[in-house]
Write a protein that binds this DNA or RNA. Structure first.
Lengths: 107, 107
DNA sequence: TTTTTATTACACCATATGGTGTAATATCAT
DNA sequence: ATGATATTACACCATATGGTGTAATAAAAA
């Protein structure tokens, strides 16, 4: 799988988006990250592994604790991909307008 | 699952992003959409169903053909979510700078 | 009307995902 | 040394995903 797919897949789960939201307020220990969830800690570990594989977090072991911090840079590619279609979601384009817009783009 | 998760999940597959790219150039018949892929047509039908469930495409039956068109609006929520983290991917923030930035945001 | 064409439905399969419980490891505190 | 704490590893399970082949449907063409 390509990297962009990994990133988009990683952020497609609400718990993982919540984790990113939490980490955007600063690094946190594993248990702090896990605290809002009512799942087992194992599940959180797995979510963190998915985020790590996508390059979206960093883990740093400090004693027996693990500090987790956000690495948002991979989100840039996601933002860029989505941004390609920004012009489409503002107006409702009928087929003729769309065709005209595309012809214009080709000149 | 919430809608945003559906949308992000839908665009996390390269074939489905390719389909969206194709449709951004204008509506297309099913076979035209399917043409670039070397999978069975069934697989394309399934991808289209995922995109439809996410609200990213519209199907309109015309005779025996199906015209498929892009509905990019759901991408807006995805763009907005990712945009939240834009400030993080430009500079490399160490933990102190991050903490300071957060404190500033709270005042 | 028969045949081709476009698309979907159904049944199936391998692997991925997201969760669990229990055990292992490593570090800190007593 | 013993025990508590933080985190992960392992084995397991149900369901989702992405693919396949074959059959069904509906409309166009012959």
């Amino acid at each position: 799988m390509d990297h962009l797919s990994d990133v988009l897949s990683a952020i497609s789960h609400p718990s993982r988006r919540a984790i990113i939201g939490r980490l955007s307020k600063g690094p946190a220990r594993f248990l702090d990250v896990a605290e809002p969830f009512d799942t087992a800690l194992n599940a959180v570990t797995k979510h963190l592994k998915v985020l790590e594989r996508a390059g979206l977090i960093e883990k740093k072991k400090q004693g027996r604790e693990v500090m987790i911090s956000l690495r948002a840079e991979p989100l840039r590619a996601a933002a860029e991909w989505v941004h390609e279609y920004e012009r489409f979601w503002n107006e409702r384009l009928d087929e003729f307008a769309l065709h005209f817009r595309n012809r214009k783009g080709k000149n």
